[in-house]
Design a protein around this nucleic acid. Structure first.
Length: 203
DNA sequence: CATTTGATGTTCT
DNA sequence: GAACATCAAATGC
């Protein structure tokens, strides 16, 4: 099993977001292996992204996103944390948000972490809680001893859904979200996304 | 099933 | 006070 490192993430956020579908996230927690297959991602950053207020706001974040690819960036919104991995060449600020996982191991422990909530990993903040991803890991490189990603069976093109990103106020029109079509763990259905902003005809 | 609403904590204006 | 890369519970069909 190939463990992903800096080299894997040294591509544009769009390429990395697309390639991460089908890869596996692994978390070792108290000797137990929690894992999930990535089924939904979003690309962020780069000069074309108007939602890069996240980048401009803070010199530290700018440095983090412009630095080495394959580094953890944990973004907070409300009381939740969202898991991002930096990507693209050094000097190009970019990252990919992991939005949903299909659990493949350790579901009971995940449910404990989620305090019995019905939904385990079908949302960016839910999966962070289910896997007990720690904010202290911020700015550290993959792989870590207790957290890493593994290459998976590539998802064929006809199984990939490409839509606009979810939950944003700026950059709503960019089709930078990728998901496994019809996968029950994806955070929102195709129909729900279509009822919002329209798909870009080019993609 | 879909949609709405309130909680939430930090940052920015 | 407003804004926010969210979530869970409540409400409407």
């Amino acid at each position: 099993m190939k463990i992903l490192n800096e080299a894997y993430f040294n591509l544009s956020p769009l390429s990395v977001a697309r390639r991460l579908l089908g890869c596996t996230v692994v978390r070792l927690l108290g000797g137990e292996r929690l894992s999930g297959r990535i089924v939904e991602t979003e690309a962020y950053g780069g000069l074309r992204d108007p939602s890069c207020h996240v980048v401009r706001r803070d010199e530290r974040i700018w440095s983090l996103l412009s630095g080495s690819p394959g580094v953890l960036y944990l973004h907070r919104t409300y009381r939740h944390w969202l898991l991002n991995i930096t990507c693209d060449a050094v000097g190009e600020p970019a990252c990919v948000l992991i939005r949903a996982l299909e659990p493949t191991g350790g579901e009971e422990r995940m449910r404990q972490r989620r305090r019995g909530a019905r939904d385990l990993t079908n949302g960016p903040a839910r999966l962070v809680e289910a896997l007990a991803i720690d904010f202290a890991w911020e700015a550290s490189a993959l792989p870590r001893a207790e957290f890493w990603l593994e290459a998976g069976e590539p998802v064929p093109e006809e199984r990939v859904l490409n839509t606009v990103r979810i939950g944003l106020t700026r950059g709503k029109d960019l089709p930078w979200r990728f998901a496994v079509r019809d996968n029950p763990w994806v955070s929102r259905s195709l129909e729900a996304v279509l009822s919002g902003a329209p798909l870009s005809p080019g993609l």
